[in-house]
């Protein structure tokens, strides 16, 4: 393996982190809450795709669609049942509720799906791209990077150009003022959760294709890494989540390749701490000005 293929694999892993981190950062920007259940929404997406292919015998395309739709519906439902009643409560309360939801999703899947991890069937059928005899790019890697790129461009355009996107931006800037200007808070928050969870659905299929294992714990570590990526880039900032995600994936793969496989998590988290010490609100985070 050469440097370039490590880099490409890192970017591919990082794009998945970025897609998940987008869900964290959008929800944080608008609802000012850390949605700790986000990682488990990804896991549910993976389980749905697995079940659709293996038990129902659906085609991979339909399975991907099913995963995305289920994740979207799940995201909206979680928001309506668990988070909406707590609007206005302290952020720590909402955090614990999110953890409760995370436990619920994990254990529901554990109960229905069993505790063994299962082999995820290959969904992405894309040929390996042979650049020269020492360097080849896996089909999954190509698809992951391209998909993530398309989604990021589309999301940026949506936020910048469309009315609901502008409403989301306004809500994250100043909730009170946005409400006075006629932004429908409930609908915009639901939309945010829907988009974040749909991205989680896409990420779930990409993640399970790159690392073809699925169990009730699949979402936990990518979820926490993506959360780290979101903070890394500056939580609440959409371009920040993209940059943070890709950087984190590259750092993780590089430290696995050149430093130590077992210690890669320590390296990733160590770099995060260093970045936060130099820039306490992340790479693209807004500076908080304190008023006395």
């Amino acid at each position: 393996m050469s440097f370039i293929s490590y880099l490409l694999n890192g970017i591919s892993l990082g794009s998945i982190y970025a897609l998940i981190a987008l869900g964290y950062t959008m929800v944080y920007g608008i609802a000012k809450m850390l949605n700790f259940a986000h990682g488990d929404v990804i896991m549910v997406g993976g389980v749905i795709a697995y079940t659709a292919i293996n038990s129902l015998g659906l085609s991979p395309y339909l399975a991907v669609l099913a995963a995305i739709v289920t994740c979207t519906v799940l995201g909206i439902t979680i928001e309506k049942i668990a988070y909406k009643p707590l609007r206005g409560a302290s952020s720590l309360t909402v955090l614990i509720t999110a953890i409760g939801v995370s436990y619920f999703l994990q254990n529901f899947v554990l109960w229905q799906f069993g505790s063994n991890s299962k082999n995820f069937p290959s969904v992405v059928r894309f040929p390996t791209w042979q650049i020269n005899e020492s360097l080849s790019v896996d089909g999954v890697t190509t698809v992951t990077i391209v998909t993530a790129l398309i989604i990021m461009v589309a999301l940026t355009l949506f936020i910048k150009k469309s009315k609901p996107g502008q409403a989301m931006l306004a809500l994250s800037e100043d909730r009170g003022a946005a409400q006075l200007m006629g932004v429908n808070v409930n609908r915009t928050v639901s939309l945010t959760f829907a988009i974040g969870s749909a991205l989680a659905g896409v990420a779930s299929v990409l993640l399970c294709s790159a690392y073809p294992q699925i169990s009730y714990q699949t979402g936990a570590m990518p979820g926490i890494k993506a959360f780290v990526a979101a903070v890394f880039g500056g939580i609440g900032s959409i371009p920040g989540a993209m940059i943070g995600g890709v950087l984190l994936g590259v750092i993780e793969n590089m430290s696995k390749a050149y430093i130590s496989t077992q210690m890669s998590d320590a390296v990733v988290f160590g770099i995060l701490i260093l970045v936060l010490l130099v820039k306490p609100t992340g790479i693209l985070g807004k500076k908080i000005h304190e008023k006395v």
Partner: peptide, 12 residues
């Protein structure tokens, strides 16, 4: 196996 499921519901 439904133990932690109930726990999660109680917590929420």
């Amino acid at each position: 196996d439904k133990r932690m499921l109930i726990y999660a519901i109680v917590l929420i």
